[in-house]
Design a protein around this nucleic acid. Structure first.
Length: 382
DNA sequence: GGCAGACGTTGTACCTTCAC
DNA sequence: GTGAAGGTACAACGTCTGCC
């Protein structure tokens, strides 16, 4: 309704650690939306997006922010350089960008509010368009685009944990139904994983629930698992490759006909910094660093099209996966100093003909939603 | 063929439990 | 007490079936 009859004028998001909310009675992440009803759409309508690094502490400061925003036009996220600094009284409180309403309609409104730093938002927008954006260097590849496709073109996401609980109980011994259960930040360290639990098919439904038959659920088991929810401040992996097909409670299995080589290439891509950028843009934020990936959104998310990258590139990506598969990654906040993530990124860059994008690792590591503080963003002067 | 209700499926918001 | 992880009740949606 809003997309048809309203002009979305302002989006305001707080990236301040532990102040993801605006209301008093919640800890959940919130966004302030201002839309104006109008008779007819105007192609020139723009959406101004404010990414607050720190919330105004009082009404006077809030008025100062509003005045600063109303007196200048935030630059366009894709075509203009820089961002509008929100610093009404000297201290920087955030950054503002704008995006054409006609572009945002039909897409996720969260895209321009994904990161506190405008340059990362800009990188996300260009990546959605198949281009790597590096601050100060421009767009890559110079010709053509990174081959991307919607995840759903590569396979089908499996059942969620509710369905698994309707069909199975956790077994105390090995069964015919291996599973990859849980996401312990101190245990899931590398891309290659093995089944860690086994499931017993239910013969009777759980109390008050319909019975799901194992034969209905098992066809959507997979070897590629994509995180269903993540804690960006503690966890390390966005996807893993399991040596056998498994079901899971907190990972989406990808049921796919892709060869093992292509699946490995996909998992390598999903753990690259470029994919972390893309996943961040498609997250559903619950409480700051605690995020989820909903099935309808995730299946539309662009990923590397491992069907159309050519055999030599495919082989190199799969080899790179094998090389780093058992190397531990550091938690996401340490991404800038993570040798394994750096090696994954270098492999992806070399194989796709892209320049080094280490600068994006550095920028992401500064994001408050990962490191839960503003120290990496703010320039403190004595 | 159209409709309504039953029933099954899917997705998630909210709640509980666990560990430190 | 708090952060992190796991479980489930419920709503929305889709499909099937019987009746007119």
């Amino acid at each position: 309704m809003i997309e048809e009859s309203y002009h979305l004028e302002w989006l305001v998001v707080s990236h301040e650690p532990r102040r993801w909310n605006f209301s008093e009675n919640t800890n959940l992440s919130e966004v302030l939306v201002i839309a104006r009803k109008r008779e007819q759409a105007n192609e020139d309508e723009r959406v101004n997006c404010i990414n607050l690094w720190r919330q105004p502490r009082n009404a006077v400061e809030a008025l100062g922010v509003a005045r600063a925003l109303l007196s200048s036009d935030p630059p366009d996220v894709q075509n203009d350089p820089g961002a509008l600094e929100v610093a009404p009284s000297g201290e920087k409180l955030g950054e503002a960008l704008s995006v054409p309403w006609v572009w945002l309609r039909g897409r996720l409104w969260s895209f321009p509010c994904t990161f506190a730093q405008a340059e990362l938002v800009r990188a996300l927008f260009h990546l959605l368009d198949g281009k790597l954006y590096l601050p100060g260097e421009g767009l890559f590849p110079k010709r053509g685009r990174i081959p991307l496709c919607a995840l759903q073109e590569l396979g089908e996401l499996g059942f969620d944990r509710r369905d698994i609980h309707d069909g199975f109980t956790l077994a105390r011994s090995r069964t015919s139904y291996p599973a990859f259960w849980g996401h312990d930040a101190e245990a899931v360290l590398s891309m290659a994983q093995r089944p860690n639990r086994y499931l017993n098919p239910r013969s009777q439904p759980a109390q008050g629930r319909p019975l799901r038959h194992a034969s209905d659920l098992w066809p959507k088991a997979g070897q590629v698992l994509i995180a269903e929810r993540l804690r960006l401040n503690t966890q390390r992996l966005t996807a893993v490759f399991v040596e056998r097909k498994v079901l899971s409670n907190v990972w989406w299995p990808l049921a796919t006909e892709l060869s093992e080589e292509r699946q490995k290439a996909l998992v390598l891509w999903l753990n690259s910094t470029l994919s972390l950028l893309m996943l961040s843009g498609h997250r559903e934020e619950t409480e700051g660093a605690f995020i989820g990936f909903k099935k309808p959104v995730l299946k539309q998310m662009p990923v590397l099209d491992v069907r159309n990258i050519g055999d030599p590139a495919l082989k190199k990506l799969a080899q790179a996966f094998d090389q780093f598969a058992n190397d531990p990654l550091l938690p996401f906040p340490e991404i800038a100093n993570d040798p394994t993530r750096t090696a994954i990124d270098k492999a992806v860059a070399d194989i796709l003909g892209l320049p080094d994008f280490g600068i994006l690792r550095e920028l992401i590591a500064r994001e408050p939603i990962l490191c839960l503080n503003l120290d990496r963003l703010m320039l403190r002067t004595a």
